[in-house]
Design a protein around this nucleic acid. Structure first.
Lengths: 285, 285
DNA sequence: ACGCAAACTGTAATTTAATTACAAGATCTT
DNA sequence: AAGATCTTGTAATTAAATTACAGTTTGCGT
């Protein structure tokens, strides 16, 4: 685990002064690595030994060693730390923070994702007679996106964001059909119902949802994505991006399973768009 | 250019003793970063000032600064590269690759994003009488997502993925209205038309699209996101994730601009969902 | 509420590390 | 071969980091 993440995760173990140090470092990590312990102590308004103790708490040998670790963290292109947006942030600040926390979320999702389960999901999807994507609210757009990907595979795909349509569709499902239910929390009652109905009608139900949620209990197969979400904004952000990436992964797995000649087909679909677009040569800037 | 490469390329400019230092460092860079100048001098069988001069020749401020640069070079295993999925990839491989290339795409997007332009877009959006989000194909789900975010702000928001509806909506737009057109390539003819119509009717048109595309020409304000896309898969993946993050940024900018009491409102919207959900306590696993 | 113990934080002293100044030696040029 | 320049090391100086210690705060049990 890199030092920046470590600071963020162990922020609760810090004492008051140590937290001041942590704040200063997180706010300007790049300048920190070029500062002396005295300069940093002054910025954080604490004494030098406090900074030193802070470094040791993070399992480094001292301040210079800490700077080395910090430099390495920063070198990884990005400090992927889940920093929260704050009231007084300007455009640069919130833009950077949102990019970074999204990337951080993807990073944790990547680490936690259950690959054998993905493989099983791909299995199921490749053998499906019909695939349905259901989501409500923010997850509806994820379902739409999934439809947009999978319909290219020349498999019957449906996608509804209307509860009644979802319900009717679920009741009509049969063995060999696959229903994918998307919900970050997994607590949306209507969607749990849909999953249950689909299962009663012998469909295979894949849940893209939180592990151990009510929805998860109704599914044949659960792909869980527990990513940290900045709840201060009251909007699903990182979670939904992770869901989309998961859809990409399932779609990719699907095409790989089908082999290379199937890929030709995708190219055709893409080429079919040509008529609706300005060719590059059409357009002279 | 990283320090290690620099040492290798400028090996000819070094003096005899400096080359000894270079050799020792290249032989064991990892131990170097944890050594003092004295230890390194001894290993290279030179004096301490020689090591110091060596560091300065490499455009660093001194030995500690040199170690910092070296640490960064070593950390730079370029962790998030845009690796393409290949035919023979198994589930672990393609899962990792898709996560990584998405993150790499976000990283480049973050570097290239035009922050003043974002700020202007936020300006325009906060003052809008009505906001419309239009996208076709894969971008339609991004438009949906944007609607899902912005309608929470209690601003009139519409979103159409039907060309005819888009057209009618664009014709009805008026001064003070904002139309957001989303298209990765910016070459979709229908969407260019929509942008043009909206502008003719005095609406402000924001384009989330490629810089210098036909669509960009029709917009009052362009937010361009040129991210690398794995075209082998014939599906928009990374580009669409970047678009979503941009939507998140705009939405966040919007809420920040409106101030903290506005945030209360968002909380209410979120709380309104409670009735449709299983409470955590309802559910005993 | 009071007093004791533990933890936190800062000041000052000490140690360690890095840099500078300078002088001796090597190398190159004419 | 002699002057000049560049290279290298020794010793002195300065800067930085760490340790030891003491005052203060905080929390807990009586």
């Amino acid at each position: 685990m890199n030092v920046l993440e470590k600071i963020v995760t162990s922020v609760n173990n810090f004492s008051k002064s140590e937290r001041k140090v942590a704040d200063v470092i997180l706010a300007n990590p790049q300048t920190t690595i070029h500062s002396s312990i005295a300069a940093l102590a002054k910025m954080a308004d604490v004494s030098e030994p406090t900074v030193n103790r802070f470094c040791r708490r993070l399992d480094t040998k001292g301040f210079p060693d800490f700077k080395l670790h910090l430099a390495q963290s920063l070198a990884n292109g990005t400090p992927y730390v889940n920093r929260h947006v704050e009231e007084e942030d300007g455009p640069e600040a919130y833009t950077a923070k949102i990019f970074e926390s999204t990337m951080a979320a993807l990073d944790t999702a990547r680490q936690r994702v259950d690959i054998p389960m993905i493989n099983r999901a791909v299995d199921v999807l490749t053998q499906a007679k019909k695939i349905s994507f259901f989501g409500l609210g923010a997850s509806a757009s994820v379902a739409h996106d999934a439809q947009n990907k999978f319909f290219r595979f020349n498999v019957p795909v449906v996608c509804f964001d209307d509860i009644v349509m979802q319900r009717m569709s679920a009741i009509n499902s049969a063995e060999g059909d696959v229903v994918v239910c998307i919900s970050h929390t997994g607590r949306t009652k209507n969607l749990c119902d849909i999953a249950a109905i689909a299962r009663e009608n012998d469909a295979t139900v894949i849940g893209i949802t939180a592990y151990d949620s009510p929805l998860a209990k109704e599914c044949t197969l659960v792909l869980s994505l527990d990513v940290p979400e900045d709840t201060d904004m009251y909007m699903p952000m990182a979670s939904r991006v992770a869901q989309l990436v998961l859809i990409d992964i399932l779609a990719t797995g699907f095409t790989l399973r089908r082999g290379s000649k199937f890929r030709e087909n995708l190219k055709k679909v893409k080429d079919s768009l040509r008529g609706s677009r300005f060719e590059k040569k059409d357009f002279v800037s």
